[in-house]
Amino acid sequence: MFDTVEDVQKRLNEQQYICGKNIATVVFLAKALGKPVLVEGPAGVGKTELGKVVAKALNLPMIRLQCYEGLDESKALYEWEYSKQLLYTQMLRDKISEILEGANTLKEASERIASQDDIFFSERFIVPRPLLKAITSEDQVLLLIDEVDKSDPEFEAFLLEVLSDYTVSVPEIGTLEAKHIPLVFLTSNNAREMSDALKRRCLHLYIDYPDEAAEIEILNTKVPGIDSRLVEDIVHLVQRVRELDLKKTPSISETLDWARALMVMNADSLETELVNDTLNIILKHQGDIQKAQSELNRLLEQKAAERAADTPQPVEPDPGKKSVLH
């Protein structure tokens, strides 16, 4: 349990997840109110990571459900183990004839079978899928429903039912109620607008790319031992690149990859050639790379000029003289 919003922030930081107050507030409220959280934002800003980290911070087991087009109840909730049922009928064939022994009419026989059919639709033959697992678990769990926007609208409607009362009804068995209300995180890349009904039941969190200061902090935490000036340069460049009109903007994870790569290459500052060679780590489309390259080279030159300017400067002309000139 979290005590305050600051506590959330601190404990997420301990898990190497740097977040602002807005994220911490939502996490705090989700835990306090027992409401699911819908996390939206561009790809690679740490939406899935947030779920994982919260699970770690609260020491909860995590159950993950990856959504995709065509995901249906039998993959997400439960499935009858058809082959096992069949196998059992085969193996119990003798037993069945025993039960049927002495039955004179067809009606009597079928009644006897009917009195036994419960065993074939018991929890023994159910394969629990993530949602059912999360609900029937003995301890509280964190349920991460990843990329919910990839699922079909029907699945979303069905999810709604599970998330609003945390019960699952299996027609043959009855309604299974959650022993502990799971902490639910849904992530979405906005490939599709989620329905209002689902949104209404969730707290909403929009994570955007971090600003320069936050990204520097993330890099310093996640890539220990990296030169701080290099970090600043990297982040500065990445932030500029994000402003360009690209097919795919570099995400935080790509910034991290880049920093790690540069560290492996023993770079201590960003040289034009080095940047050009490693640009494919943060940009994944040829068109994007071409677009960014010219922009970056300009930036790097500018930077080099600034660095040079940092060394002793010529004395500025007397301001008094200037005004005479005007």
Partner: peptide, 12 residues
């Protein structure tokens, strides 16, 4: 502000 936003505003 964050608390109100997360409960009321669901569209970025």
């Amino acid at each position: 502000k964050d608390a109100l936003r997360t409960t009321m505003v669901k569209h970025w």
